[in-house]
Structures are given as C-alpha cells and as structure tokens.
Write a protein that binds this DNA or RNA. Structure first.
Length: 429
RNA sequence: GGAGAGAUGGCUGAGUGGACGAAAGCGCCGGUCUCGAAAACCGGUAUGGGGGCAACCUCAUCGUGGGUUCAAAUCCCACUCUCUCCGCCA
C-alpha cells in the first residue's frame, strides 16, 4: 500500500510514477475521497466531543441527585444520531478508499529503467559465457526421462498438465540442492531458517500484495477460505503482521524452503514442455525486514547471496535490472538472475530479488521501534529466491550432461547427494 | 467432532453503567544517591486518526461486529480466536 500522506502531498509525482507501470490515473478518486473523509471526520469528532462533554455533565448532575430531563436526553440522542450517520458515511468512504489503495502497485524507485514489458529490462552484468559443447546437448525433458528421474506422464495422470514426478536420482538431487542452499544462506549469509504453512488466510495474501488483484493465479480452498502460497514470501511477510518489532532487532533475515503453487492461468500455452513452468514446485526463499535507510544496500547484498548459489554451482548467469513495466506489483526495484541452460538453449529466471520498500509492511501493519525512540516506523521488506528448484535442476541436468548421457554432479553438491554422477541408463519403467 | 474455560496496555492482572485510556505489580526510559554499579527513592512510559508553527486540543481503540443507553471495558446478541479435557489421527 502506498502512503496516503505521500499521495496527498505529491499527487503529480505519484501519477507520473504509476504511469510508468502502466497504471492509468487511479489516484484522482483517492484524492477526492481523502479530502471528503477528513472533512467528515472533523465534523463527526466535533459532535462526539459535544456528546462526551454533555454526557459527562449529565452524569455529574445525576450523581448530585438531580434529574436528567427528557429534553436534554432527546437533544443528546439527536446529536448521537447525527454523529452515527457521519460515522457511517466515513466508514463507507473508508472502505472504498481501502479498495482503491489495495489495487495501487508500489512506486518504482528513480533509476529503475522505464519500459512497458520485459524487452525494457537491462542486463547489468554477466558471469561467464554459454559454453560451447562438443556434442549436441539434450533438453531436460528428453534427458530427464531417459535418466528415469522425471516422469511427466504419470505426474499428469495424478494432477493434470504441468505436474510431474521426480524419481530415483531426481528427488535426491532436489533434496541435496535444498540442503545445500539452506546451509549456505544460514551459515555464510546470516539468515535464520524457518519452516512455514503452505496455506494462508485471505488477509495474509492481501498483506503480501497477491490479493485482491491476482486471485487468478492462486489455488484456493473454498471451504475454509485458505489460499495455497505461490511463494514463501507470502507467509514471511506476515510473520510480524500487526506487531511493533522491538528496537535493535532489525535486520531480520529469514530463509525458507516451501512448496509453491501457481495456477499460471495468464501463461497458458507458454513453456509447456519440461519443468520450467509448473503448477507446483519447491523454492528456497530469502527475506529481510530492514531499516528503510539500508534497504537498497541490503538488496544488493541479497542479490549477491543468490548469485553466490549460482557461482558455487558453476552456472553461467546474468543479472537483469527489471524495467517499470516488468516488475512485480509490490516491488520498487527488482533484479532478476537468469542461468544459462545448455539443452534448451535458454536463459532461465532462477531468482527475482526485490526491494518492496514499505509497501508490504504498510499493508500488513508491521512497524518497528527505532533506537532513537519516538513513533514506531515502517520497515522495508526485501525478498529474493535463493533459488527456485526446478530451473536449477534443469540447469544442472542440461549443463552437466556428458556425451554418454550421464550427468556429473557439481563438486559442492556431492557431500549432499552422496553420489558423483547420475548414471546413464534406459528407464526400465 | 463433543464438553468446559477464557480474551483488558510490552507482560501479569484489577475493574459496582457515569470522574476509566483504564488500579496495582513487573518490565522499560530518565533522574537522585554512588568512584561506578546494585538496592532504594522520585518522575515518565499504548496505538491510530483529525486540527494546530507550537505548547496543546480533540476523536477512536479493553478479541471482532452489531444492539440497548444521554453515557458501555462493564448490560444484550452474533461471530472469531486461544486454552483444558474427551474422541479420532500422521
């Protein structure tokens, strides 16, 4: 959620910023409501003050044995009714205001490239070059089946298209990757590991910015109004919902591995082969609550934490600064990390790292006590994948494949896998 | 799923419809004392909104939403959540 004070004081700036995100003018009504609401509040409060004052007098009079006249009662009843009516009006306007505010995306920071879609995003650095292989590398959908580690057909049988089973060396590799990443982030990068519910309540989805606008992309349990998380970012954002974090506790850094569920309705027909775009996948997610002044520096570090995984796994990767039109709803600034996959000859997005500034914290009513005291402040929140499992699996399988069809395990993973190579074999079943 | 108990400030915990944003204690902050600290004593200590340059004024908030009343933490209704016991169960 944007700050209403900021919108009120800088309407033109906000309009311009929202326009770069493809928003047409959606703050005119907000500004009108804001003015009307404040006027009504003043009126209502004056009536309430009057009511409180006179009621107190009546109470004192009565305690001294005087009768409260029916006339005085009727008069106060009338004032009360007027105040209630104004209160009702305030609530209605407030509700409408809330609806509007929930649909406004975060403002891009200055310096974020302006553009309509992914073509406007900028590659800011690249690590390594796509290797030239002396044989024809296979895409993972072929290789995975041949190795007997990805079973598309039976996954589809169980849950429909875009679901799959990992088998044999497949889930072992995934487990190893998860452990490797969690250990790296907790031991070397200062994160605390946390394990979370994979379903959340409606208001939790609102806090992170996924609802009300993006219900289409979520799986939902009608009976209990629970929503399957599309990323661990959702529950972590709301950990401190409606709380004031004590002084001297920021930054708070969490890393979590969760399943992620995405309906991908908007992407029907895209990337239908393989496990690049699926409805359920595992992801290791980094998340931070930080002091506002430090959020951009911390974002740079967080990106490096994700890059560290890529470097240690020996990936060729590049980092992109997303443009205004390509960023997520809650983000003010986002860097994507893409790794090269030799088989499908594609750059795969394995991480998206964002500074959501105070946007999510305000929606979730999270505040913190600063060292200097004074009013509670709103922290900034950062999130980034570290990393998404299926695409990392793709990169490993495709990039480390050998001419004989086997896959060599990267050095750093071997303590976790317990094997050095996924042997070539014809799947028996 | 069945039965019962409860929900009040950072925490514990009082609160006969009127002086209650709320006793007391703890915690925390500041001060006195001290070489320093502890103890003791004194003072301060919720959040959000509206108005004001400011001092400050004012409104709302005692789980949530309704209701009764001139007036509700307190009375009435509904809901939610938590805890305990029983049943079922990974």
């Amino acid at each position: 959620m944007l700050s209403i004070e900021h919108i009120r004081e800088n309407p033109d700036e906000v309009r311009a910023a929202l326009k770069t995100r493809g928003e047409d003018d959606s703050i005119t009504e907000v500004l009108e409501l804001d003015t009307a609401i404040r006027a009504t509040i003043t009126e209502r409060d004056n009536l309430n003050a009057e009511r409180n004052r006179v009621s107190k007098e009546l109470g004192q009079a009565r305690s001294q044995g005087q009768e409260v006249s029916e006339e005085a009662r009727a008069q106060m009843r009338e004032i009360g009714n007027q105040a209630d009516a104004l209160n009702e009006k305030t609530k209605e306007m407030g509700n409408r205001m809330g609806e509007l505010m929930l649909t406004l995306p975060n403002l891009p920071q200055s310096g974020v490239p302006v553009g309509e879609d992914e073509t406007g995003s900028i590659i800011i650095r690249q690590n390594g070059e796509p290797p030239v292989m002396d044989f024809e590398p296979k895409p993972h959908w072929d290789l995975g089946e041949e190795l007997g580690i990805i079973d598309f057909e039976r996954g589809t049988k169980l849950a429909g298209s875009r679901f799959y089973n990992l088998v044999d060396y497949g889930p072992k590799l995934e487990r190893a990757l998860i452990s490797f990443m969690l250990d790296l982030h907790t031991n070397d990068h200062g994160y605390t590991e946390i394990s979370l519910p994979a379903v959340v309540k409606r208001e939790i989805m609102e806090g992170s910015g996924n609802l009300p606008k993006f219900a289409d992309n979520l799986y939902h349990d009608d009976e209990d109004d629970l929503w399957l998380i599309p990323t661990a970012e959702v529950p972590i954002t709301n950990l401190y919902r409606d709380e004031i974090i004590p002084a001297n506790t920021l930054p708070l850094k969490y890393v979590a591995q969760t399943p992620c569920f995405r309906r991908e309705r908007a992407s029907a027909g895209r990337d239908t082969r393989g496990i690049k775009r699926v409805h359920q996948f595992n992801k290791v997610e980094m998340y931070q609550f930080v002091e506002p002044e430090t959020s951009n520096d911390e974002l740079d570090k967080l990106v490096d934490h994700a890059e560290d995984v890529c470097r240690k796994l020996g990936f060729t990767y590049r980092v992109l600064a997303l443009c205004t039109g390509d960023m997520g709803f809650a983000s003010s600034k986002t860097y994507d990390i893409e790794v090269w996959a030799a088989g499908c000859q594609e750059w795969l997005e394995v991480s998206s790292c964002s500074n959501c500034t105070d946007f999510q914290a305000r929606r979730s009513n999270i505040r913190y006590r600063s060292e200097e005291g004074g009013r509670p402040r709103i922290p900034h929140t950062l999130n980034g994948s570290g990393l998404a499992l299926p695409r990392v699996m793709i990169a490993i399988i495709e990039n480390y494949q050998q001419p004989d069809g086997s896959v060599v395990i990267p050095e750093v993973l071997r303590p976790y896998t317990g094997f050095d190579v996924i042997p070539a074999k014809k799947a028996t079943i």
